[in-house]
Design a binder for these strands. Structure first.
Lengths: 193, 193
DNA sequence: ATAAGCACTTGATAAATGACAAGAAATTAT
DNA sequence: ATAATTTCTTGTCATTTATCAAGTGCTTAT
């Protein structure tokens, strides 16, 4: 039950006292999942918030042709949350699945609510997490709308090279909004240079 | 100084007492802007949070060819916020500009902070706003990654037809991630049916 | 160890979208 | 009211990406 990675995540985001972090993470429990295992299935309600301590995972939807479209790739350390489902108790649209073996910490909404309303630092942390996630997502929309696939690939490779060591190319392709054969061709083109 | 539209926005999101809403919106001041006017310029720090009471506006960035890429379209009633800039005091990447004549209510971070930490209902409201905005943005990423331009156009037309009565097509085109001539052709194709 | 199933690549071809330029239509400024 | 400016459309052609199918190599299960 070593919560150091979980606790350090709080410290890494903003200045906060050790005792307060320990109070916040008091109710978190740990578990692990094998690779290619579903953490949260679509059309279910997320009752937990998850901290990914180790590993790679993704969220995906099925399109009209029943192809999996990867909507997000997650890597430790980070919080993994279907905000709409967890906070508004709505069924998820996406399925959340591990890519590698993963270890997690989790807690439920009741504990989050208690902390949110009783610990000012946790409120600030929660909001900061939202702001950061929103901003990342916004950057991605901008890339999707303004850059061609090759540029998006190059940027991802530059910014998160480790993803290519841990996530299959077909998942990366759909995350970039292209087919796996297109990604393969783009990689071939670039390797020539 | 009729705050009814501002106040009603709170009531429309979740059950909350009239007196609490009035307390929250106490510090909001109103102003109006002409069409095509900048509300918040890129590379500046957003010191205000805005409620758009009437009108249409957008955010945009300039790409490497100095073309404006519309990143978001806003229409009343809604809150308009550059989260990263407002909460983390970072310079904005995007410029926020009115499209039609707009009327706003605004307040500053100090007031938001005071309410956030002293009024539980305002905390819940703030988080709900984040969740809803995040979820909308996520839906947009999914569309961008999985649907072709024509489908994205049809969906926007179905879901927000009023946008086409109030926002120039070239802005809508870049919001959809295509050029204005492509949008023109797509519209022509569809009108044939 | 072998077979089965995936992941990845590659070829040929088609579809979607972009680039650029010119003109029509609408809007705005004088 | 007229001119100037901006928006929208359309034509031609180029580029980007998708589709489908086949083949190779890697991983996994028995």
């Amino acid at each position: 039950m070593d919560k150091s990675k979980l606790n350090n995540f709080f410290h890494s985001l903003f200045p906060i006292q050790k005792e307060i972090v320990e109070k916040i993470t008091e109710t978190f429990c740990d578990f692990t999942l094998d690779k290619n295992t579903i953490l949260l299935d679509k059309d279910t309600i997320s009752t937990k918030t998850y901290f990914l301590e180790k590993g790679y995972m993704r969220s995906y939807i099925l399109n009209e042709d029943n192809e999996e479209i990867t909507t997000n790739i997650y890597y430790a350390p980070c919080f993994v949350n279907d905000f709409l489902s967890f906070f508004k108790k709505q069924p998820t649209k996406e399925t959340y699945q591990t890519i590698t073996e993963c270890s997690f910490w989790q807690t439920n909404l009741e504990n989050v609510q208690k902390n949110f309303h009783s610990i000012p630092e946790f409120r600030e942390f929660s909001r900061l997490l939202f702001v950061i996630n929103y901003s990342k997502l916004n950057d991605r929309v901008i890339e999707m709308a303004s850059k061609k696939a090759e540029t998006r690939y190059i940027n991802l490779l530059k910014q998160q090279p480790h993803i290519f060591q841990n996530v299959p190319l077909k998942i990366i392709a759909s995350y970039l909004g292209i087919t796996d054969s297109s990604l393969s061709r783009i990689r071939k083109e670039i390797s020539k240079i």
